[in-house]
């Protein structure tokens, strides 16, 4: 069985990627399970999806805890949710990542698994975010060594059939290109035994607890600050103090209360919580807020 897990952000096409791959396997005659994992988080928030493919009916269900292949569509996830992204990685796990980092940097951060395969954003079209589903699905299809180009393209067309024709054509074109580019990795991901690894869970007898804690209640206010929604961001607003007139319109319009005012009266962005909507840049009357790519900003600050 192939066990493949995708990680990305809400709105980036991770679910579609898993569906394309699922369909491609299916067209090759495999039994398939593909599914997204939803949380309450929205666009920009870390999300995942998974695909299982086998020659016989699949009895496993739900999350994949020991993946043969992990796809990381957005490298910032390695900084913000590393443990989730790398959960269950073992010596046979292949990692595929779209990243501007060097191989040694990546190896240092990931530090486990069999191989890291990287595509640098620089070799992709500038607007590659629009095609992330096809890019990740086609690379993955090639890694299996089993999915043929025809099945892949059928998969892309099938899953994007509600999109406009131009977009489908652009997607199939990039899928073909990536599939070819990844030829040398054909078959790098291998099927593993379908037998699950059994670890005996330690069941407990849950005692009756005090009624005030045994209900989902919060007995104080403003606890959401612990929820660092800054991890959702792919671009960040940056305030240029020299241009800023301290009108604080950015503060007024920021939906997330993520802009504060410092002692000199300048707005300060709370990057732990800013989701990167960039309303502040849009409403700034003096053009004092610019947009920076999150990856670049992070590498500058790290």
């Amino acid at each position: 069985m192939f066990r493949i897990r995708f990680h990305g952000r809400g709105g980036e096409g991770i679910k579609t990627a898993s569906r394309i791959l699922g369909s491609s396997f299916f067209f090759e005659g495999f039994q398939v399970q593909d599914a997204p994992k939803y949380g309450a988080e929205r666009r920009g928030a870390p999300v995942s999806a998974y695909v299982r493919a086998d020659h016989k009916q699949i009895y496993e269900r739900g999350e994949i805890h020991k993946p043969d292949l992990i796809i990381i569509a957005d490298e910032t996830l390695l900084h913000v949710t590393r443990n989730t992204v790398l959960e269950g990685i073992y010596e046979n796990t292949v990692i595929f990542i779209i990243s501007a980092m060097s191989n040694s940097e990546l190896e240092e951060i990931i530090n486990c698994g069999k191989t890291i395969i990287k595509i640098a954003p620089a070799v992709l079209p500038e607007n590659y975010h629009r095609f992330l589903s096809s890019i990740t699905a086609s690379a993955t299809a090639r890694f299996t060594g089993i999915i043929q180009i025809d099945s892949l393209i059928r998969g892309v067309e099938e899953e994007l059939k509600s999109a406009k024709n131009d977009l489908i054509l652009e997607n199939t074109a990039i899928a073909k290109k990536i599939f070819n580019d990844m030829t040398s990795y054909s078959g790098i991901v291998t099927e593993t035994d379908g037998t699950p690894v059994i670890t005996e869970p330690q069941l407990i007898d849950l005692p009756l607890h005090n009624s005030s804690i045994a209900t989902p209640a919060i007995r104080t206010g403003s606890t959401s600050v612990k929820n660092q929604t800054g991890s959702w961001r792919t671009s960040r607003p940056v305030i240029l103090q020299e241009k800023c007139s301290r009108c604080m319109l950015c503060n007024v319009y920021c939906p997330d209360s993520a802009i504060t005012k410092n002692e000199e009266g300048f707005p300060v962005i709370d990057y732990n919580h800013c989701k990167g909507c960039l309303i502040c840049r849009e409403v700034c009357p003096s053009g004092a807020i610019t947009q920076e790519d999150e990856k670049t900003s992070r590498s500058k600050t790290v």
Binding site: R42, K226, N227, C247, D256
Partner: peptide, 19 residues
């Protein structure tokens, strides 16, 4: 607009969509 509070009673960290 300057009279609107710059400190907010609604804390950040919600799971509403960006924007």
């Amino acid at each position: 607009i300057k009279d609107l509070s710059v400190e907010h009673n609604l804390a950040p960290g919600t799971s509403m969509c960006a924007g």
